[in-house]
Design a protein around this nucleic acid. Structure first.
Lengths: 343, 343
DNA sequence: TAAAAATATTCAAACGTTTTAATAGAATCT
DNA sequence: AGATTCTATTAAAACGTTTGAATATTTTTA
């Protein structure tokens, strides 16, 4: 059947196409009577206006693009997929659509060709997660689009960012350990991305310092940039165990690391938490399913996504790119079974 | 800056807009010389044609919609998110975009209002996962769009479906158990969706029958439709344990159930697999992270998605909805640590 | 070398909306 | 009652492509 157009509706309602358009867009200056008549026809005919025809005029496609890195570890996706869901909900609410754009973020040096879609689709805004190559950020900048870095792991120049306060999260984790009497605390983290690395480590360091605790240097384990989070953490934990001195607890800068650390501990014949306590950050889906269930600092992804979307749509509504930077620090302690009280 | 259009490019290349269009669409009848000249300008100017203007003419938006049920259990999403990723890869390859449509699939009786996007966007095809209310299927049918039910749990009438051969998967799981000397095998599954339920159970039943094994009825545990997979499985396992007779192994119709079952076993002070073996179906992400790592029948989601996309795009390319039904049976045994050999 | 055929390019209409300016009609003011 | 304002409606242009028909150019054929 030939697809219905606005002029079909107009004919059926006995008005001009313009009137139908005005009604659909809830514009003022239409008599209550004709408005109702038009809406009736639309309802009855099940009419939906052509999005492409609209976009062409409006220069807005009611679409948000989400950059999705196809290159990362499955566990890393867990946190992002959780964000995806909340963003989808938010956008649906606002009658925006979400398109996912597959990207391959390699290393920083190789510029990433931004998929054409961002330009040809006329998306209204862009979201990306975590660490993003600078070439992407500058590329987006040229498009002059509202662009939000969510859970941003770097200091962006020309776009919006919502950064998780990993320092605060680390402090919360450390506080839980020290509150439970731990002082001999090892650290498993990474040296990349720099900002994230610095924040988590500083949380660890300052907490120890404030309590005048000193630990062996071998307890501080930093993954290098391109190591595999989970497996490397396993090796890092082994290194700690072989260092001679034995910590009572390990603070992991991410749940992924905690998973590797626990695996190493088990393999070494140690029990968690009776022999060694472990705590992480994030609370990814898997964390409550491992054995023992991981005690961790939960980052509320739903609120994180909402706050981010608020920023993004503020910029979209204003009709201009923005460069606001905000920080997110809505943490709660997910107390499960990997931290033992020494008191 | 004013956005570039095809006529800007035409001017710069010294040709007409039509020529530019022909070049971009790789149409024949353009001299090699002008083709190169035009492409040069496009490249240099970084030109991307307006998707909305194109769609309007072509009546194709180069877009696939994925129906995403916001109502389901996080663990159930795991399998689907794995499919998402593969579909995204496939579509990107073909220069199609993926838009995710949030749906709330409740029960079958309440009709689901299909989001307007499916009609106004002019999507070229639709994919949904798992069990879908019939109202959705009939709704999609009216749109006369290529529509694929992926990992379909029902017998569709008017759309394409790619069904996983859960009977075969169940047989593979059962074979692994019996090969390892198990005969006293309990069953944890569900009675919904009917087709899925029937297939997995039939795999279980026929395997036992062929070996002339009989088991107590209390070992056959069917979840009801709206119970929560994971937690119900835990209760089902408890019921089996309290039934008096003790199985040496439990076949779970899905990994989610296996996770609940293992939890119950542990809580009862039993060890997996020394006391009771457990096997599942799916191999969701989490299965290799639980303790002990779950032995399960892996369904290769990447191939499943590819086969599905092949079907979908065959229909799209043919320009007409299709009603092909295929079955997927690419299983491999993921042997991990929850099945003990009795031999 | 004129006509025919083949090749390369362009014209102009079409796609289905939104929107500005114009029009018609009703209500208000002097 | 004529002029003015206000309200409701519409005509027509615009958005940026694609495409079938038309034109211009070159090559082949007779």
């Amino acid at each position: 059947m030939p697809k219905l157009t606005i002029v079909d509706i107009a004919k059926l309602a006995g008005v001009s196409p313009s009137t139908v358009s005005l009604v659909m867009n809830k514009r003022p200056g239409i008599s209550e009577e004709t408005r109702k008549r038009v809406l009736d026809v639309i309802e009855r005919m099940n009419f939906a206006p052509s999005q492409s025809a609209r976009s062409q005029i409006l220069k807005s496609s009611q679409t948000i693009a989400v950059l999705f890195n196809m290159n990362s570890h499955p566990l890393e996706h867990l946190f992002q997929e959780s964000l995806n869901k909340s963003i989808l909900r938010y956008c649906t609410e606002r009658e925006y659509n979400l398109v996912f754009v597959a990207c391959s973020f390699g290393d920083d040096s190789a510029p990433v060709a931004l998929p054409n879609i961002l330009r040809s689709r006329g998306v209204d805004g862009v979201v990306s997660y975590g660490y993003v190559p600078v070439s992407v950020i500058t590329g987006l900048q040229d498009l002059e689009l509202p662009y939000l870095l969510l859970d941003s792991h770097q200091l962006p120049n020309h776009c919006m960012s919502l950064r998780v306060d990993y320092y605060g999260a680390a402090r919360m984790a450390m506080k839980h350990l020290t509150d439970n009497g731990h002082t001999q605390i090892a650290y498993i983290g990474s040296n990349f991305p720099p900002l994230y690395s610095q924040q988590t480590f500083e949380g660890y360091r300052s907490a120890l310092e404030e309590m005048n605790i000193v630990v062996p240097l071998s307890w501080i384990q930093m993954q290098s940039k391109d190591s595999d989070g989970e497996d490397s953490a396993e090796k890092q934990m082994q290194a700690i165990l072989q260092s001679g001195a034995m910590p009572t607890a390990v603070f992991c800068a991410a749940d992924i690391y905690a998973i590797g650390a626990i695996r190493a501990l088990k393999q070494a014949g140690l029990r968690v938490p009776s022999d060694v306590s472990v705590i992480g950050i994030d609370d990814i889906l898997i964390s409550s399913y491992i054995d023992p269930p991981l005690t961790t600092v939960r980052i509320d992804t739903s609120r994180l996504a909402n706050q981010g979307c608020d920023m993004l749509f503020a910029s979209i509504d204003a009709g201009t790119p923005n460069t606001v930077h905000e920080e997110f620090s809505d943490f709660t302690l997910a107390v499960r079974s990997t931290v033992r009280s020494l008191k």
